[in-house]
Design a protein around this nucleic acid. Structure first.
Lengths: 208, 208
DNA sequence: TTAGATCTGTGAACGAGAACTCAATCACGA
DNA sequence: TCGTGATTGAGTTCTCGTTCACAGATCTAA
């Protein structure tokens, strides 16, 4: 392996590969070819090989990839080998749903802090997590939490983001529909549900 | 304007432009330059101009874009001038949150049908919409609903998708973590919350 | 031990989209 | 009417990521 900057798109696909490998772990065979993995995930096999090749020689020519080893390797790359704790900011409709969302556990990510502005919600315990006042965000660094999930109204998004950054948060999953201004070292991933849905009518057949 | 296939990325930005224009409607001035719009949305001005130029000469050299006209124009392109009705499939945690989500109305999209498998939920009325049995999906065509929001367990996703396609649905917003196989005429937009979050640890500073 | 089949890793070609640049256009004031 | 400044529209270039194609590595079987 030479030095390469790994494309963001490759990183984005790694969790998908991980999920695809899951459906092969019970299998009798120990290894899987790039073709097999590609078929399951509906991508092309050269894509799989190229993506994996950024991280060294993982596979065996003529054989394929050892399923267990590859799983472990991808988890190591993504740093999903040990549990990451995340803070949920905003316990509204979406926030509540995200707290109950089970899709995070497969990736070793666990929400163990919830922050809210509304005094009526503060103090309640939901899913074994106590809802705290939003001012307590500053404690995140001390608690070893460096990932935040932002599900609050647009008006407060930048202000709260600044607090998160001050508290040492290094990654934010932003469900807010606004752009978040952060230092370069902080990674923001945006999920804009409204925009995604708003695109659909364009693709509908005319007259629909 | 010449013939051009409009990039998907351009379509995806149009709703964002629309939202940006919203913050200028109360303004005293009638027009806005590509630079001003770009600054608000944190994109580059040539990007804005290129995107808009796909759809004909909308702006005026030396002046900019007429805010009202541009808003109308983008809404027309995206077909957001008249209300689109959408069906929510799956009234679980996420489904319930999406039904209450207010971000769709700005884009003239309204959920007016909810489908569920769980008999205990069927019949309940939430947000003025009655929850129906999932078998009633077949009625969508007759009801003029051609957009679906899918928020159900992975195991059932392809089966339900097939029903949606049969019912004439032309666009699906897929919150399921599985690939949906659909005919070419049907547009699927995927939102994979788990994958998005799983990427974050990779970007954290080492040791965090 | 060798032939043949399989499959990886990667350099190179390809393609899509973003950014740059500048000629053409327009408003406005002298 | 003409000159000046501002801003668009679009051709060109650049960058990034995907796809292709094949050399090289490994396994199996005779």
């Amino acid at each position: 392996m030479r030095y390469h900057k790994v494309p963001d798109e490759t990183i984005r696909r790694l969790p998908v590969y991980l999920r695809g490998l899951g459906s092969f772990t019970n299998n009798s065979t120990h290894s899987i070819s790039s073709q097999q993995l590609a078929d399951v995930l509906h991508v092309k096999s050269p894509q799989v090989r190229k993506d994996l090749s950024y991280f060294g020689d993982i596979g065996t020519p003529g054989v394929g990839y050892d399923i267990q080893k590859l799983t472990k390797h991808i988890r190591t790359i993504l740093r999903l080998n040990n549990v990451h704790f995340a803070a949920l900011v905003g316990y509204g409709n979406l926030g509540a749903a995200l707290l109950k969302y089970t899709g995070f556990k497969n990736f070793c990510i666990e929400i163990n802090a919830v922050f809210e502005k509304d005094p009526r919600k503060i103090g309640r315990v939901v899913q074994n997590v106590k809802i705290e006042d939003i001012s307590k965000i500053s404690s995140l660094h001390a608690r070893g939490i460096s990932i935040a999930i932002l599900a609050i109204p647009v008006a407060e998004s930048q202000g709260v983001t600044d607090k998160l950054v001050d508290a040492g948060v290094g990654g934010i999953l932003n469900f807010t529909s606004s752009y978040l201004s952060v230092p370069a070292k902080v990674k923001v991933i945006n999920i804009d549900i409204g925009v995604s849905l708003a695109c659909l009518p364009y693709y509908l057949p005319v007259g629909a």
